[in-house]
Design a protein around this nucleic acid. Structure first.
Lengths: 222, 222
DNA sequence: AACAATAATGAAATGTTTTTCATTTTTACA
DNA sequence: TGTAAAAATGAAAAACATTTCATTATTGTT
């Protein structure tokens, strides 16, 4: 696991760093808010531990700014006892949880796991444009309207949504959706793409799946 | 929303009670651990606010006991600052969150909503016995083994799992799964039950669906 | 034990989805 | 613009799922 520690008190930061290393994880330390924004541009962290009181920007400001930049990385705020009154503010700023100092490393790990679990299990629908794919019913929904997808259509759309904006080759689709690991003899991938396209366009009046000649498909939304 | 407040300090309990009433919710106050166990037997609460330090049983003991009795009601522990060290213990005892005193009512509401959200979105699988129904893939799973259910079989099993231990009539199944609101002319419900039974028994070597002559079916697990 | 009501079953009929195939359309590039 | 490769399409064939139906088995009651 890749953790970003944003904390200006050296002793706390170093203790955390060592503890993460000892549990087989990897952490990066930064000392102020600006450095947080720089760091997340370079590395994709699993979680950010953010000190409430830091030079230049408060944890809260960093938090808001990250969310404005559409960064969804889970954030846990580290707050001192005197700041307890502002917990609600913290949650509203887009933090996912907070820990009050002093804390044990055991508690930090427990909190991180709780937050990650919440994140992972929070995915029973995938949004795109003004629509969502309901992962339970396998239908595309918009307010009260829905279209049911067949199984293959569902799996295809789900895969596209999990890989928005990147080129996906037919070979990859074949592997991931049909579990076929050798060159295909027929064009069932194209046929399924066609059917999904038709259903989506009839329902949404938009084109989401673009063909990249010789390479594969890209799904575009927003 | 129906809230159970387990708190022996009258002033705190009453303030909460009034605040819940003011926000259109309803709360019940009990003063010790035993009364909590009695109360949950009578009423189905949406959330339980549990004081850590109470006469007769600590909040932690109550928590453990509720979970042992298979009660899954969300629990938020109310702890004093001096008890901060034991947060991990609290989470491990089956509590879903905790709030340190003193707290604002605004914060209580925020926490409750966070916990409820987590609860509701946490359901992309339904466990029964040693197995789980995966709500995304529509398959029954046990470790690495899986069986895929057809759509009707999936909906039927899902409905059974959400209504474990209660008699479900064919009329209700017809309404809820087939969306048919008038007497049926054929026996497709029985046929679907038969097919689901076969798939489940082939896979699990157990019988989960019992017939109640003249009334309907019951799903049993554990 | 005998009966009528209810439930379970196997198999055919119908409806859907998935895959295949022959043909047409689009694309990149000379 | 002409060509070959790649992609899209309509429709048939094959595989699956759902519903119907006739028959057999089970249940509660007398």
């Amino acid at each position: 696991m890749e953790v970003l520690i944003a904390e200006d008190e050296q002793s706390i930061a170093n203790t955390l760093l060592k503890s993460f290393a000892a549990t087989g994880n990897h952490a990066v330390i930064v000392g102020n808010g600006e450095e947080v924004l720089d760091a997340v541009k370079k590395i994709k962290f699993d979680v950010i531990l953010l000190d409430w009181r830091m030079p230049k920007m408060t944890g809260l400001q960093v938090c808001r700014q990250l969310r404005e930049l559409q960064d969804q990385t889970p954030i846990i705020l580290l707050t001192a006892l005197t700041e307890i009154a502002n917990k609600v503010e913290a949650l509203n700023a887009g933090a996912d949880d907070y820990i009050t100092k002093p804390f044990s490393f055991e508690e930090v790990l427990a909190r991180i796991n709780a937050v990650l679990r919440r994140f992972q299990s929070n995915t029973n629908s995938l949004p795109f444009g003004n629509f969502i794919l309901n992962l339970i019913t396998h239908a595309v929904e918009m307010e009260l309207e829905t279209v049911k997808l067949s199984e293959k259509e569902f799996e295809l759309l789900k895969f596209f949504l999990l890989n928005k904006g990147t080129i996906i080759s037919k070979e990859v689709l074949c592997e991931k959706i049909w579990d076929i690991h050798y060159p295909t003899t027929t064009n069932f991938v194209e046929v399924t793409v066609k059917n999904l396209r038709k259903k989506l366009e009839d329902f949404t009046s938009q084109k989401f799946i673009r063909t990249v000649y010789g390479e594969g498909y890209i799904f575009f939304a927003d």
